[in-house]
């Protein structure tokens, strides 16, 4: 399948997550308006950063004088899972030039990575990533604008009830993973259990992700060894 065909396929496949992306964009627009950020800056942030978790993290610090180092650090921490998503695509992006692969990685999102790893037929993965990312990018920008513009119409109570929307969307991705995986889900289960235990015993939040992922990796390696 050509790059263009795969791009179109990716754009069409993104419809499900287009809606959830739109919701998060709406919430970001609302939050940006209530934080006093000008609309063009909120749109510029959405266009340049294109990451819900990073942008929400930055809003927590958005007051004069802007603490650049704190914002950069919190953005890096909440974006650390992107490192894992990027690593998972190591074997997926074909023989395109290095510059082209690195450029298109700007459009990498969680659902795109999940869907690429589920693809089982002859699709150009870089094209798919691009189409998927561009579609979600359009959703993100449009919804930021909409949320900001109509911020005054929505009640705070309803916004608060959407706090759980993030985990909910992540659950949809996880189920796609589990159902599409040819491998056993045991390492993922272990990561979840370790994370829960660390959370319950009050470990610092920044340690939970790396330790839990490491536990999953160890189990995966053990399973690979025992199967091999």
């Amino acid at each position: 399948m050509s790059f263009q065909q795969s791009m179109w396929l990716g754009a069409r496949a993104s419809i499900g997550f287009w809606i959830s992306t739109f919701l998060f964009g709406l919430l970001f627009g609302l939050a940006a308006a209530s934080a006093g950020i000008e609309q063009w800056k909120a749109l510029f942030m959405s266009a340049a950063v294109f990451s819900a978790s990073a942008q929400f993290a930055a809003l927590e610090f958005w007051e004069a004088p802007l603490p650049l180092a704190s914002i950069a650090l919190s953005v890096a921490l909440v974006s650390s899972r992107n490192i894992l998503l990027g690593m998972s695509l190591t074997h997926q992006l074909g023989d395109y030039s290095f510059v082209r692969r690195m450029t298109h990685l700007a459009l990498l999102t969680d659902p795109a990575a999940v869907m690429i790893l589920r693809l089982q037929y002859n699709v150009d993965r870089l094209g798919y990533l691009t189409g998927y990312g561009l579609a979600l990018f359009v959703s993100w920008i449009c919804s930021t604008w909409t949320g900001y513009t109509f911020a005054h119409l929505l009640a705070d109570a309803k916004i608060d009830s959407l706090d759980f929307a993030g985990p909910m969307v992540m659950t949809t991705m996880m189920i796609l993973f589990v159902k599409g995986s040819k491998r056993r889900s045991f390492p993922w289960l272990i990561s979840g259990i370790v994370s829960l235990i660390m959370f319950e015993v009050g470990m610092p939040a920044y340690t939970i992700l790396p330790v839990s992922v490491a536990a999953g990796v160890v189990v995966s390696l053990r399973l690979g060894t025992s199967n091999g």
Binding site: P167, M170, T171, F177, G216
Partner: peptide, 12 residues
């Protein structure tokens, strides 16, 4: 498996 591990670590 890395993305799945990351999602589970955040989800739980």
């Amino acid at each position: 498996i890395l993305p799945g591990c990351a999602f589970m670590a955040i989800l739980a």
